[in-house]
Design a protein around this nucleic acid. Structure first.
Lengths: 127, 127, 127, 127
DNA sequence: GTGGTCTAGACCACA
DNA sequence: GTGGTCTAGACCACA
């Protein structure tokens, strides 16, 4: 899990997205205990308040829950996790497709660029 | 050219992206005169200063230039336009690919989702 | 640091030059915190927006950077500072030399005028 | 005589400076007839009004005068020309010296940079 | 408190 | 009419 922020958007939002990604991509096990707020804020090098705000948003989406005195835990609802992962993938694909089209590329152009991109990464991975 | 803004990011940045997209996707002819700052700001329903900030960034990228009292003009450097279009498409593809992979999808999954997305849009276009 | 402006050129540009000069001539320590935008704008007796415009250009040149809610800081890149100082001195010398030559003065004339100028300032400094 | 303008300052002022330089550096003979406004404005690729404004300022400084129906002429006052040339050289030297000092360079540094600059130009001129 | 954004509105030089 | 500059002042997110 890498914590890299840009200045253009609120840090708590970026934190939220990083953590959400980690959860829905399976970087955390369902039901797993999260590191403490203090620990996480050290790892991310952000103010604990900022981290709390990100966790609050995760809680709203039902991805984590708090057990008083014992800490914060990833949801055990695997169906929710799968749904959110698919939904996010779908949204990203839709956005990607529309932006490429608005640049004037055809469906075929897009397929080709994507294939090229995959090829680059696979050959790079071989070393 | 549609001017629709979301609240998450600065308007001037969104303006810049909309205009940049319009230029590199060929929505303006190379060398063409832009509408005046006052006109454009009316079209986008923003303050002229906000628009100026966006135009300033476009000027820095070399996509437009100013003739002091006669207006702003799209660059005539068609090579620059083509380069920026390809570069943007490449970056978007790269970012899309990496994000999908970080969600745990395989190259094949990604190709399939993209194909599905294209199919949806094409069948929608048939009506 | 003196803030004195002439009417011929935009204030934000003059502000930029004054601040840049201050940084590359060592008037600020590398890494040092700048006065807040509000403070600086009071010192310079200009509107905060005008100052922001100048600071934006400094940021682009990499001479300052922003930590979101704690302020603006001079770059810690001492090499950049040295490079920019030398580069500016070189450019000023080049421009001075060419302008003097275009006035019809020989290299020797120029050396003499400069020596005279230095002599004046040194004797003035003795009082 | 090269007509190159930057966008930061009024064109008529830059024109004025170019023409003044040409006169005081001896590019025009004292008493010589100037090209017509129409011709000059074509050479400089500027609006005739802009050129007129520059000529007006030259007239105020006494560097040119108008003979009704026969055109504009360079002043015959050679003393004035010499005085202005020296004065301009002095001012440029003073400005150059002060700016270099404000960058933190010593008198000796300045002499060295100037010598280096001259050396570059002379060796370049040998080819 | 900190930087950042945005608007309304005035004014300027220039062609 | 054109771009450019500047101010006053409000408001926001964030730490």
């Amino acid at each position: 899990m890498k914590f890299e922020f840009d200045n253009k958007r609120p840090i708590y939002l970026q934190l939220f997205e990083i953590l959400k990604n980690e959860i829905i991509s399976g970087g955390f096990e369902p039901g797993q205990k999260l590191p403490s707020v203090r620990e996480l804020s050290l790892m991310a090098q952000v103010n604990p308040n900022t981290l709390q705000k990100a966790l609050g948003t995760l809680k709203q989406e039902g991805l984590i829950h708090t057990r008083r005195t014992s800490g914060k835990f990833i949801t055990e609802d695997q169906k929710l996790i799968r749904t959110l992962r698919l939904e996010k993938a779908r949204q990203m694909t839709e956005a990607y497709y529309l932006q490429m089209r608005s640049l004037g590329l055809s469906s075929q152009d897009i397929q080709e660029m994507l294939t090229l991109c995959e090829a680059n990464h696979e050959s790079a991975g071989m070393h």
